[in-house]
Write a protein that binds this DNA or RNA. Structure first.
Lengths: 346, 346
DNA sequence: TGTTAGCACTCATCCAAGCGGAGTGCTAAC
DNA sequence: GTTAGCACTCCGCTTGGATGAGTGCTAACA
């Protein structure tokens, strides 16, 4: 079905969305016909609106209210009508300065990016730490906590620190662990996790032949560590901002949303999905049976380092969101974080 | 002023608080006189209530409503009237199992403790990571990220990993950093931060005499690291639970509370203050000009390891809270976390 | 002197009715 | 194809009365 909209329909849809974005109130035909860029009487506007409603771009909450854009309406708007503003020079500079000058480690930079996204957009900032598999190995450290309990500290090329507890079968001394540590750091430093995994797979095959105890231990431990993805950490910043949104006054959507923030698992799922796309990705409403973010939209963009490490950041807020402002903001934030990631380490 | 309450007044205050805790509705004189443990007519009850109101333990939201306990009323109740229940055996076992069996590192245990506190109490769980100064040093690691950028990874005796970026004045190679790392780990492992600090202070004094470059570097770097407390990290779990509380339906208190959760600085302040007290600590309402938690109460208890590491955990929720249940819960959680902390490492 | 019944009074909550306003759909005229 | 006019719908607000819970006060009672 070719749902080609006429020029007039497009104009009116755009006007409705912009008006609704600004006011949050259903938009009536009179209001629109008063706009300077629409030289039509209310009655004509009404005809167009009725068409748009039939096509599923608009709906009215009740008989005698104005129209509100549907999710479909928003999707069309974002895809075809929206003209993205340039981010003002001030905001760009403001952003750059906020991030750059402090002595923050990578995790701090990511957190701060989320905080700034939230502060500028007035919505909630989301930042996901790069997934394990997309990172490059810099250093690993095994620390003996108790006889069979070993703390593994893993540091990526970009300076992200992750750690985890491993329960080993036979007791190990710290000295033995240090040997393993040295061995792994020498062998693997600078390789991507993918490379390491295949290296280990190869070595393991030979391993039965050469009975180097140290090497075997190292391989076992490291394969164990790499087996489970540490990643999927999400920073949620400015969750309280969503309380300010008038559309969430009815509490039920808000509760669901905050619950989602608490649990994070769903966020990870959503962000993981968005991460597969390049550039700014906009998820409007509860597409793909994600009813948890009904009434909300998610604007995300991937950040990455030269070495291939990629994570994702963005903003979540009500579907009635000034996309023209939020999209370039997220876009710029992502490129900024990418820059910092690259400058963070050699 | 000796505000000794008569036996009857105490009984009625207790009955009002228990009733109000259960229902959330203002309590009237008829309701009370119907209770089996009070053999008084409504009129007599009213007299007592009027007295209690004069003394500031109660207030009525309007002329013809029942009475509601004030913060002062709650404080008196908790201090003098409350009989704390024993935590049921089931809950204890449930708790112990939740925490014990998973292979969690220390940070994971703390997070999980907060999550469980929140889930059982239906309020919000708070856990503060032990402050730096109260911890025992196990291991430190310097990783070179760029010419003058060094990532410091610090591991405490109890297996807590913290990290931080240091900007050094002169370029260092990873080899030099490794030497420093080894030196510090040999010298300081097992000492408390306090001990290390005074050690450093002493060595620094001598340092001008002996020009051991390595040692000087190590001292400088470590003093720099120890100078700034890394701690003050707070885990907030189950923030969305407070949305369920009927007393927060008016949004304004709720917003302030969630904003406080977002910022965390105030939480750290509150928890730091509570940490100075041993045993379960109960902060009711906005005492000490902390208007941010107006209408809320904070029930906390310190956890600690044998080695002196202490942190604090607890629950924050509306002042109308079943203290008889929450207090032993927090108490038990703290002792449980202490046990795990001790068993976590040798 | 402490306790209690009675009574007038207050105030929130609920419900129904009425009204104004915003907006629509339809029709007929331009 | 566009527009003015009109009947109609429905929300939101206000008003007013009824209801009920609860209080304070007073006077009678043990």
């Amino acid at each position: 079905m070719s749902e080609e909209l006429s020029e007039r329909s497009r104009l009116i849809l755009q006007a409705i969305i912009e008006d609704y974005t600004a006011t949050g109130e259903p938009v009536g035909s009179r209001t629109l016909s008063r706009r300077t860029d629409i030289n039509l009487s209310p009655a004509s506007v009404r005809n167009v609106m009725a068409d748009l409603e039939d096509l599923g771009y608009l709906f009215s909450p009740h008989t005698s209210a104005g129209r509100i854009p549907t999710d479909k309406g928003y999707r069309f708007y974002v895809a075809s009508l929206l003209r993205v503003q340039q981010l003002s020079h001030e905001v760009r500079e403001h952003l750059r300065q906020e991030c750059q000058f402090r002595e923050l480690d990578t995790e701090g930079v990511l957190r701060e990016a989320g905080r700034i996204l939230s502060a500028i957009s007035n919505y909630t900032g989301l930042v996901m730490v790069p997934r394990f598999t997309s990172t490059v190995f810099r250093r690993i450290e095994f620390v003996r906590l108790a006889q069979t309990r070993v703390l593994v500290v893993f540091i990526t090329q970009t300076g992200i620190v992750q750690h985890k507890l491993v329960e080993v079968r036979e007791p190990l001394t710290q000295g033995e662990l240090d040997e393993v540590t040295n061995y792994l750091n020498q062998e693997f430093s600078g390789l991507s996790i993918q490379e390491i995994k295949s290296r280990i797979a190869g070595d393991m095959a030979q391993e039965q032949a050469l009975f180097d105890c140290l090497q075997r231990r190292a391989l076992l431990l490291s394969s164990w560590v790499l087996q489970h993805d540490l990643g999927g950490q999400v920073f949620v910043e400015g969750a309280s901002n969503i309380l300010e949104q008038p559309e969430f006054a009815d509490l039920s959507i808000m509760k669901r949303l905050l619950r989602t923030f608490d649990q994070k698992a769903l966020l990870v799922e959503l962000l993981d999905k968005a991460q597969q796309v390049e550039g700014v990705q906009i998820l409007i409403g509860s597409a793909d049976n994600h009813s948890e973010i009904e009434g909300c939209s998610l604007v995300t963009s991937c950040y990455s380092s030269h070495r291939g490490t990629t994570g994702i950041l963005g903003v979540i807020g009500p579907t009635r969101m000034p996309y023209a402002m939020v999209i370039p903001l997220v876009d710029y934030a992502a490129s900024l974080v990418s820059d910092i990631l690259n400058s963070q380490s050699e």
